[in-house]
Amino acid sequence: MTDLELILQTIINSLIFSSFNALFAVGLVLIFGIMQVVNFAHGAIYMVGAFSTWYLYSENGVPFFVAIILSTLLCAALGLFMERVLFRPMRGNLFGGLIVSVGMLFILEVLSVYLFGQGLMKNITPYFRESWHVFGIESITVAHSRLLVFAVATFILGGFWLFMTRTRLGWAMKACAQNPEAAALQGISIGKISMLAMVISAAMAGAGGAVMAPLVRITPHMGSPVLITAFIIMIVGGMGSIEGALIAAFAYSFFHTFVTTYIGGEIATILGLVLMLMFLIVKPTGLMGERESV
């Protein structure tokens, strides 16, 4: 593999990594924007998505794509439940939502240990076995299951973008994020919008988990590192800003993948965190953040 090929390969890896990170982080940012809740259980929802895909597809022989869709729906239902039971009574309580989401994180992790056991390796026999050789170059390979991550993430994010820019419901959601009181005065039901936002957000995390399931080790704690990455993206992008999150997801993923390829994984995370702190010294509200909360 020549230098150029390695660079090309790394760029493609970065693209796939960033599409997933963007999908995951946008869900987190959406919830913060609408409800002012930092959802610590977002990683747990991702875990639930991966677990249910594994359970349906590998254990029960449900077709792969049906399993992905069912897992996404399951996570959406989980999101609906969390909004109605946990986050709604906490509205206006600045740290209340965060705390109950931590409680939910504990419960979901324990539930998955209880249902499926901790130590067992949960391998998914890959649905796609072939790889794609970019530009016909033999040494640059992208497994089809990784291409699926990119495709699904792009599809969902594209759909979400259309929803936000083209539909009245999307505008209503944007209005809620910008000024909840004014939105309520215009007859927008904040409760309904919060519910919808939570369903979308949970579905994004769930779909992410479902398509990542064949690529990662499925454990009850698989959500934590992904959540930490999403926090970095969220805060660099500016909390509550979806555009910021997208830009930050690409920047961070490229940085992280390149440092991982050329130096090492742990160093990449440490450097990422340090760079984030340095960035925040210069601009404490993140890339796109305008207001300082509190």
Binding site: I228, F231, I235, M239, L273, L277
Partner: peptide, 26 residues
């Protein structure tokens, strides 16, 4: 405290978490 107290609220919360995680990863 130098970088962290430039932030407030949720930025501080997540910022302090990230700073701590950087130390732990070291």
């Amino acid at each position: 405290s130098f970088p962290l107290f430039r932030m407030k609220g949720f930025y501080f919360l997540i910022g302090s978490f990230a700073a701590a995680e950087a130390i732990r990863l070291c």
